[in-house]
């Protein structure tokens, strides 16, 4: 059988998805052009460690409203090899489900002590940690009554590894009807943070969220 590239599905009930999803099947990359499709981002610069504490806008400021949580995990490729020194960018809504993004016109309540934007780097073993406020769910499409469950957006860039993903929370009643979740099918559990207790620390709880970056790009150089 002839091998074909992926046909990307249009996401359910999403206008942007309809407008921006290529209608043609993706084209396969010939082997001798493969290397050029593994963009290798320059080594990440140092980042202010305070950017990993999203519970406050800056050191010494009060914490935002809601539950402070700790998120930890390891970033690796499909073979379990750590992805070191990668840039992790994080963004999430506040307790009320509102982003500080200038284009969030939902009108939901803002929190004067919550920015909702953070960054950190993975260490030599691929481990990362950041702190934030547990986000609220939000009504993403009032016209059709569609909610987004609680989630944290993450973008990871390290060498030729690249993923933009979301961490979800087990038991959120909106998980079952979330279009993103439906696209994930059986593998949804890969995107759930695993809750753990943080006794003696100033958090409501912690979440372990290990990230496996698949596809050919993260393993391109090691396998070559």
């Amino acid at each position: 059988m002839e091998k074909l590239g992926r046909q990307i599905e249009i996401g359910p009930t999403d206008n942007t998805s309809n407008e921006r999803t290529p209608r043609n099947r993706l084209h396969l990359i010939p082997d001798n052009a493969r290397g050029s499709f593994a963009p290798y981002a320059p080594q990440n610069y140092g980042i202010n460690p305070a950017e990993a504490d999203m519970t406050r806008i800056a050191p010494g400021r009060p914490r935002g409203e809601g539950d402070a949580i700790k998120v930890t995990g390891q970033i690796m490729d499909e073979f379990g090899r750590p992805i070191r020194n990668s840039l992790i960018e994080i963004w999430n809504a506040n307790k009320y489900g509102r982003y500080t993004h200038i284009e969030d016109h939902s009108g939901l309540q803002l929190d004067p002590n919550f920015l909702g934007v953070g960054r950190t780097l993975s260490d030599n073993d691929g481990n990362y940690e950041f702190w934030t406020i547990r986000p609220g769910e939000y009504l993403a499409r009032p016209d059709i009554g569609r909610w987004r469950p609680k989630h944290i957006h993450l973008s990871i860039r390290g060498g030729s590894s690249r993923i933009i993903t979301q961490m979800y929370f087990a038991g959120d009643p909106h998980n079952d009807t979330d279009p993103m979740r439906i696209l994930m099918g059986d593998n949804f559990d890969k995107n759930l943070g695993k809750e753990y207790e943080t006794d003696g620390e100033d958090f409501d709880c912690g979440y372990q969220f290990d990230i496996v970056i698949g596809g050919k790009n993260p393993t391109f150089f090691e396998n070559n």
Partner: peptide, 28 residues
């Protein structure tokens, strides 16, 4: 978008997601 790996010794990849509408402008 899920992606099944052909070889059983590979870990299952975390699902990719869209950028969404609120990627923080200041990160760039």
């Amino acid at each position: 978008m899920t992606q099944s790996s052909g070889k059983s010794n590979r870990l299952i990849a975390t699902n990719e997601d869209t950028l969404g509408p609120y990627y923080p402008i200041s990160l760039c």
